[in-house]
Design a protein around this nucleic acid. Structure first.
Lengths: 214, 214
DNA sequence: GTTAGCATGTAAGGAGTTACATGATTTT
DNA sequence: AAAATCATGTAACTCCTTACATGCTAAC
């Protein structure tokens, strides 16, 4: 079974589902969307794309070298030993039918794999392609996970196995605060999602009585 | 040229400088001090300790099995020949003279290696063993680093190369907020350190007073 | 006319994890 | 007597980075 990171794979699939892209552009988008906290290099991206092609989840469409191809030289002179002379060609990737299917099944899961540290950010970034029910369950799962961590954190503070000095304590305090802030952030998101779910479930038949009807 | 992580190495040296420890205990302390955001496994720790021994920075002192020897068996019958059959023995590590020297030189550096994401936490956790001048410079260096990041972040938002959807934007916003909070945290620490430095320069009792500072 | 950015890839290797192997001691 | 925890270690593997190799095109 596929267990691990999948972060890059999911991110690539998610971005390509929005529009086909070539590797270079893909990397920029990746690092924009997952902004600053997770930057992948080409040495990671290209082999990963290769793997996805092999597994049939994405397909390549070699594009013409630059849209205006007025320069001749298309004939390839003499030495053809190489598998296409590298250069300003672009290899455009897009999802296959299986790729779309796979992505949907990934985005529909709401288990630990979705809310653990490594994966949560990507999954959240792709919430636009995730259904409302799953969004809510992922947010709640993450919230539970964080409060568990908070619990363990506080316990180890009240039962100190060894004394920490001033600075180590301050570092812990700040770390705790970060987690608390994320929980608070999640609370806001969760209530927004619940509001949306309520509005949506009433919407098809009857309009929710939110502001009007006073 | 030692460039990389060094995180574990520095952390180990720092902890052993406070008191000699055996591997198992060391790991627990490590994960307490660097709490939750960086947990190392034995598969990482033991080889690292081995390496530090090889490099002469730490030395082992094989301890008697179980410190409280009230239970018979204190004598330990003719052993010593074998590398000791695995079990409840403890290999206690402590810093050598070179190890102490090395640690001091590491803790005295205030360059990017001290304030980049990977290393900052460990360096901060060891501020209790760092001199005031270096503490301040590390904090300021980190602050500058973070404000640079903030700048780049905002620029890429005001010059959007591609539009991000609602959730991706929210993720970015929250990420930005985290960085802003850390800057604010640093501001508090920096002013505390400055206050301390001022107070200390009035009572030049012990400790080093070297360095100019005009 | 040279620098900077675009574009694609490969090879070597570092840092860390999981799973395994072994066994003693404490607790239930 | 079983289970948990203490304690040390190794082997295989994963993920990712750096450095390299190649060459086009735009801008200064």
């Amino acid at each position: 079974m596929r267990s691990r990171s999948d972060v890059l794979e999911t991110a690539v699939l998610g971005l390509l589902n929005e529009s086909p892209l070539h590797g270079y552009e893909l990397r920029k988008r990746l690092n924009l969307v997952l902004g600053s906290f997770r930057a992948f290099s080409y040495g990671t991206l290209y082999p990963a794309l290769k793997g996805l092609v092999t597994r049939g989840l994405i397909a390549t469409t070699e594009s013409d070298p630059t849209p205006p191809p007025r320069k001749g030289k298309t004939g390839i002179p003499g030495r053809t030993a190489k598998p296409m002379p590298l250069g300003r060609r672009r290899v455009v990737y897009e999802l296959t039918a299986e790729g779309k299917e796979h992505l949907q099944s990934v985005l529909a899961t709401a288990g630990p794999a979705a809310w653990e540290d490594d994966n949560f950010d990507v999954r959240f970034a792709l919430f636009g392609q995730t259904d409302a029910d799953t969004r809510l369950r992922v947010l709640e799962g993450r919230r539970t996970r964080l409060t568990e961590r908070l619990e363990a954190f506080r316990e180890s503070t009240t039962h100190p196995r060894s004394r920490l000095d001033e600075y180590a304590l301050e570092l812990r305090r700040f770390g705790l605060e970060k987690v608390e802030r994320e929980v608070h952030w999640l609370d806001g998101l969760i209530s927004t999602e619940r509001g949306r779910a309520a509005a949506q479930s009433h919407s098809p038949q009857q309009e929710q009585t939110k502001k009007e009807r006073g």
